[in-house]
């Protein structure tokens, strides 16, 4: 299972990386076009959609590599066995929190689709495609959070940009 999720994480992370570049190019195109007297419309809004996708597709990879920041000084002060138990408990709560967020994002995405919610601008860009991608990111995030219950964070492992990248 972890192998499958890891493959997904890796693919999402590579995709998000390219989206970062896309985000940059959208905004560069915006000011270059404006400088030449052909202002483009809604580029900043479009870059926001890209940003939202980058964010939500990236959660799971961060979870796999323990990059989501957490406090460690209390748990590090505990003896090994107790520390392990506390961290497993905390990770169970993490699963609950992620599940709640997944549910909320899903309900919100479905409503956005039903009401054809759009962002006001020169164009009317619907929000639901972005929101469905957010749901996708949350599903993988939930799977990864569940898998992490079985492997509590090693001392000093958490946070920071991982080597895997």
């Amino acid at each position: 299972m972890q192998r499958l999720v890891s493959v997904a994480n890796s693919a999402l992370s590579a995709f998000s990386g390219w989206l970062m570049l896309l985000m940059m190019l959208i905004l560069v195109a915006d000011f270059v076009a404006r400088l030449f007297g052909f202002p483009l419309q809604d580029m900043a809004q479009i870059s926001v959609f890209v940003m939202m996708i980058v964010i939500y597709l990236g959660f799971s990879g961060c979870e796999e590599n323990r990059e989501h920041v957490a406090l460690e000084f209390v748990t590090n002060a505990l003896p090994d066995r107790l520390r392990r138990k506390v961290l497993i408990f905390a990770q169970c709560l993490a699963v609950i929190a992620v599940a709640i967020l997944l549910y909320a994002v899903t309900v919100n995405a479905l409503k956005a689709y039903r009401t054809n919610e759009a962002i006001a601008g020169a164009m009317q860009i619907p929000t639901w495609p972005t929101k469905f991608l957010m749901v996708l990111g949350m599903v993988v995030f939930l799977l990864q959070a569940i898998l992490n219950v079985a492997r509590p964070v090693e001392r000093g492992e958490g946070g920071g940009v991982g080597d895997k990248i």
Partner: peptide, 18 residues
Amino acid sequence: VTGSMREAASITAMLFLI
């Protein structure tokens, strides 16, 4: 290049969850 892009995407996700 892609390594830097992935790294930036990952930091972004981490930061925005917070």
